[in-house]
Simulated scan of single mutants.
Amino acid sequence: MEGSENTYPIDPENAGELARLMQQDRLLTEGMGGLLPEPGIALPERGRVLDLACGPGGWALELAFQYPKAEVIGVDISRQVIEYARAQAWSRGLENAHFEVMNVMEPLVFEDGSFDLINGRLLFAFMLPGAWPKLLAECDRLLKPGGILRLTEMEPMLTTSPAYETWMALIAQALKRAGQSFSADGRHFGIMPVLPRLVRKAGFEQVRLRATVIEWSMGLDLHYAVFKDSLIGLELVQPFLVKVGVATREELERLYQQAVAEMQQEDFCGLWNLLTVWGHKPLAGGENKPGEGS
């Protein structure tokens, strides 16, 4: 991976991050109610699907398993992550799952009208605000008429841990300083409020929203899984926070230890808030109306 291309706050080729992303894929799919739980999203039996910034391929691999006659293609900037996803597809005998090294902030090497569905989850972590309209225009080009774009994003998690809340605030500030945030003041990531409008302005129709909240309070089944995901993420994001100057390594280490203790308290409560936005490429004829409803 070329450093100049990499806007990930966490090195996606770190072994710990690879394991975290695989687990996170399963967490998100389970917490959101399945691979394609939104009403009105139906994949043709022999449909073609593109998964943007697919990481180690968890969602794409599961979709390829569930839809054996469909073709599922995942793209990611990290060659090591793509090689891992290819190995997973091979080991599971999923000949309908393919993975390619591509940067989704650049034009993608697929023909016009190639896909029935384009999916993307948690792209906020690396996407530059100015790259979103370009990516959505590319999705419009790649989708067949009537095809569906489906995007899921998040804002900082809500918890009763003062240290974890501070962590979320620091990450939001760091993304703002790095120019990777829509937030006006750096108090949140800023992607959820603007995502529906971005999708409408790109010309998609019948744009709908579905909120998901994953509760990971102490005593619930998902507590340990999200707790573990958070711990690894907090550890691996530290170099990024130090680099952009929102905290020192010593301050982060103290906060980390405090957060670990607080998230294991008997009365700990936590919510992971997500928003899925999906819309259809117009069927045919006439000009798209990018400003409609915006």
Rank of each mutant, 00 (worst) to 15 (best):
Q23N: 11
F182K: 00
Q66K: 09
D76P: 12
V81M: 10
W167K: 00
P9S: 02
T160G: 09
I73N: 02
L50C: 06
A19Q: 10
R254E: 15
G120W: 14
V260P: 02
A202F: 13
S294C: 15
L28W: 10
R20M: 03
Q238Y: 01
A247E: 02
P68R: 03
L198Y: 12
P133C: 02
G179N: 00
I82M: 07
R141K: 11
P162L: 06
E153T: 05
L94P: 01
P12I: 04
M218T: 10
G74T: 09
L274A: 07
L175A: 05
D185T: 11
Q258S: 14
V246C: 06
R48C: 01
L61R: 05
G245Y: 07
P193N: 08
Q80C: 03
L18Y: 04
T166R: 12
V242N: 04
L195A: 06
P44E: 13
G93I: 07
A261C: 05
F240Q: 07
D140Y: 13
G16V: 09
S91N: 06
R200G: 05
H188Q: 11
E262S: 06
R177P: 00
G291H: 13
G245C: 08
G219S: 05
F126R: 02
E266S: 13
A225K: 09
C54V: 12
G3E: 10
P156Y: 11
S161Y: 09
G203K: 13
F99L: 07
R208L: 15
L222Y: 10
G57M: 08
D25E: 06
A125K: 05
M22Q: 13
D140N: 01
N6I: 12
F99K: 04
E266W: 11
T212N: 12
E250L: 08
A261M: 07
E266H: 12
T248R: 02
E235C: 01
A89S: 02
P68M: 05
E155P: 01
H188W: 08
L149T: 00
M1F: 14
P193G: 09
L209H: 01
A247Y: 05
L36R: 04
E71F: 00
Q265A: 14
R177W: 01
D229R: 04
D51M: 01
E262F: 11
E38M: 11
M102N: 06
L52F: 11
G93K: 06
F189D: 02
P145A: 09
L61V: 08
L274E: 08
G285V: 12
P68Q: 04
G55V: 09
L36Y: 08
L122Q: 05
H188M: 09
P282R: 15
L158E: 13
V101Q: 14
T166D: 07
F126P: 04
L222Q: 11
E262A: 07
E38V: 06
L18P: 01
T29W: 00
Q265G: 09
V81Y: 11
G55Y: 13
P107R: 08
D116I: 01
G186E: 05
E100C: 07
R86N: 04
A178S: 15
F99D: 05
P156W: 10
P282I: 12
P145D: 14
